[in-house]
Structures are given as structure tokens and as C-alpha cells.
């Protein structure tokens, strides 16, 4: 099936979806959202692209092997949990810093955000691994 509408929509929706997913990830800790949902939204952009252009092009636009994403995501999550151990606090203790950023003002950064980023990448990797494998076989 070749649909121009779908192709153009998929190409133009890729960026908004990704930005939206990062916003969802960002607001996650105290409001609805978070790494898991953000990862799903980001994955849905690539799935749409996959439907419109096929597996090969979708893989090309992702650049990384989705399995590498899983590894990176898990490593980030593990690192965020281990960080407190190096500072002599119990495993997985949440740690926070206040940072002043030029446009965003005072922001409250912490290891939970880092952990969520790991979850985001892992979910993205897992979903895309499944989807790419299935659409390659069919």
C-alpha cells in the first residue's frame, strides 16, 4: 500500500512526537507522565514511520540498533541507582541538585529523572525490537 498522505504525515510527525515524548518524560516525576509513557510515544512515531516507509528506512532513521538502546537504557538506570552508593548512602537513594538554566529558570534535577531516562530508552528499544522483528518476518 502506498499512501502519500501517510508518508508525508509520518515524516512530519516524527519530530513533534519525539519532542512530545521528551516533554512527557520531563514532567513525569510529579505529574502524569514519565519514562515508560514517554518511551511508548517515541516508539509510536517510529512505528508510524515503519508502516509508511518499511522496516529498512525506519531502521535507517533510528540510526542505532534498538537492542543497543536497551543496553544503554539499562546502564543509565543502573548508574542512577548506584550513584548514591558511591556517596555512602543506601542503594537507590534519590539525590537532587538545583540548577539555574538561562531560559528555564531554577530547575530541580535528580536521579529519578536519570532513572526515567533509562526507562525511556529501554522501553523505546524493546518496542522497536519487537516491531522491527515482526515486520521483517511478514
Amino acid at each position: 500500500m502506498q499512501s502519500h498522505i501517510l508518508k508525508i504525515a509520518a515524516r512530519h510527525l516524527l519530530l513533534p512526537f519525539t519532542i512530545m515524548s521528551i516533554i512527557i518524560l520531563w514532567r513525569g516525576h510529579n505529574q502524569p507522565g514519565g519514562g515508560f509513557i514517554g518511551g511508548l510515544v517515541a516508539a509510536s512515531a517510529f512505528i508510524l514511520y515503519n508502516v509508511a516507509y518499511g522496516v529498512q528506512d525506519a531502521k535507517k532513521i533510528l540510526r542505532l540498533d534498538p537492542r543497543t538502546l536497551i543496553g544503554i537504557g539499562l546502564a543509565i538506570a543502573l548508574f542512577s541507582a548506584l550513584l548514591s552508593v558511591f556517596l555512602r548512602m543506601p542503594f537507590m537513594t534519590g539525590m537532587w541538585v538545583d540548577v539555574f538554566l538561562p531560559l528555564l529558570g531554577h530547575q530541580h534535577f535528580g536521579t529519578p529523572l536519570l532513572f526515567d531516562t533509562g526507562v525511556y530508552l529501554t522501553v523505546l528499544g524493546v518496542i522497536l525490537t519487537v516491531v522491527f522483528t515482526l515486520s521483517e518476518e511478514s
Binding site: 548514591s84 548512602m89 543506601p90 537513594t93 534519590g94
Partner: peptide
């Protein structure tokens, strides 16, 4: 051997 009938607790994430 350390436990020796006692109980050790570790609170995750403080």
C-alpha cells in the same frame, strides 16, 4: 555467619 540468629535490615533508597 554474620547474621547468627539476628536480622539485618537494609532500607532501599533511604
Amino acid at each position: 555467619l554474620n547474621v547468627n540468629g539476628e536480622t539485618i535490615i537494609y532500607e532501599m533508597g533511604n
